[in-house]
């Protein structure tokens, strides 16, 4: 079966302490519960969680929705986004099956990045590595006014921003991510086609500004 890999890159730096990190944790939980109710998603979508602070870690390897269990995340340290981009690149190499004569490969992965700050490492190096991998689409979310949308724009064309990194806004972002994964899994299963960009995804809620 062709899996739909979904990578969530979550900023767990010190500035996320308190309400934001709790909202992210909750957002992922609600997202998983809700996707489990979607017949296409529960079969095709596989989720991985990568956190980045002073280092990047793959907290949950690519896991099917039925077996997925959220891990505890805590906020501390700096914002090594570049390392996270590098890690998602190698995770794609290791986890996403390629199409060969004997097997149908996985669908191209979806990557969602959420950050509330400016990268503190050599992010361009990580980006260089990430760009070598094919994704169906990558969406980056700048949570609050301290995030740099210019940096994110260099990672992907699909950048959205939240005015504040409060629990309500973060929850809205995850609701939209949920809908986007749902739409993509339905589309790959029914039409056998990948979704390629923001325009094909459900319209984002009012809290989410599309950065052009």
């Amino acid at each position: 079966m062709r899996r739909l890999p979904v990578y969530l890159l979550l900023d767990t730096s010190g500035s996320m302490t308190g309400e934001p990190i709790e909202a992210v944790k909750n957002g992922v939980q609600v997202m998983i519960s809700s996707l489990r109710q979607n017949p296409q998603a529960i079969e095709t979508a596989f989720i991985s969680i990568i956190s980045f602070d002073s280092t990047a870690k793959q907290l949950v390897p690519l896991t099917d929705l039925a077996s997925f269990q959220m891990v505890d995340i805590k906020a501390s340290g700096t914002t090594n986004l570049g390392e996270a981009l590098h890690l998602v690149a190698t995770s794609i190499d290791n986890e996403v099956a390629k199409t060969t004569a004997d097997q149908k490969g996985d669908w191209k992965p979806l990557v969602f990045i959420m950050t509330d700050g400016i990268p503190t490492d050599d992010w361009q190096k990580g980006l260089e590595e990430f760009k070598k991998r094919k994704t169906a689409y990558t969406v980056a979310c700048a949570a609050g006014s301290n995030a740099d949308t210019n940096v994110l724009k260099q990672i992907t064309d699909n950048v959205v921003s939240l005015d504040t990194a409060d629990s309500q806004s973060i929850a809205k972002f995850f609701t939209w991510v949920t809908a986007s994964i749902g739409v993509t899994s339905t589309r790959v299963e029914d039409a056998g086609k990948e979704v390629t960009g923001l325009s094909e995804l459900p319209p984002p809620p009012a809290e989410l500004n599309i950065v052009v």
Binding site: P39, I42, Q69
Partner: peptide, 11 residues
């Protein structure tokens, strides 16, 4: 404990 729905029942 998480109990998943029967995928068949979701269709």
């Amino acid at each position: 404990i998480i109990i998943n729905p029967d995928p068949k029942s979701l269709w």
